[in-house]
Amino acid sequence: MLRLEAVHAYYGRAHILAGIDLAVERGEAVVLLGRNGAGKTTTLKAAMGLVPVATGRVVFLGADIAGRAAHEIARIGIGYVPEDRRIFAGLTVMENLAVGRQPPRRDAPTWTVERLFGLFPNLAAMRDRPGGRMSGGEQQMLSIARTLMGNPRLVLLDEPVEGLAPAIVEEMARTVLALKREGLTVLLSEQNLAFARLVADRAYVIEKGQLRFSGTMAALMADAAARTRYLSI
């Protein structure tokens, strides 16, 4: 569904991505693991058109989308949930959801506000609360719900459990699994291996802007050397 081919990207003058190749198939949940600063966020932003792709291709459903504007990429069915949530603080829960709304697609799960409230019961109780007056966990739920309003084919989740309390991490894991059951394709970036292990089928490990490992989650769990080398201290 999504394929990155030899993607290079810069942040200012810093060379962040030095040739990333990865693929996500329909219905999969794939995790991008790596330490802080490894290039996970930049990889997702490059796919979303929020960071310019210097060289390389980003292929989505057979078309090269590198260089397209972010709103065009959103409209062909890639949803993006940023690391820092970026809730519109002055907009209510309902309004935040409205911003994300797009027409339904035949080949992707269709979401309505009511269905999303079923998935995130907390949000249903605070329809008219401004986004700026919600807790971090609630904002994270809203950020995901807002992206789902666009009925995406593929969702990019950037460190969805960063800074969240353990209980909410579990809830988030259940949520991501529920999304997968709906038929949604998910590419997430994570530092939290325990969380990744619960939700992902396959993993890529990125370090210093390059891929160091690629394989199933089970293979990664079996490879203690790789985990220690790239992820632990």
Binding site: A69, A74, P82, R86, F88, G90, V99, G100, R146
Partner: peptide
């Protein structure tokens, strides 16, 4: 909805674009 989009773009243009809003 248009007004909501305007307010969203006033707060965070990049995020609005990532949600499909044509600036």
């Amino acid at each position: 909805r248009w007004g909501t989009l305007v307010r969203a773009a006033t707060e965070d243009r990049e995020m609005a674009a990532a949600l499909g809003v044509d600036q």
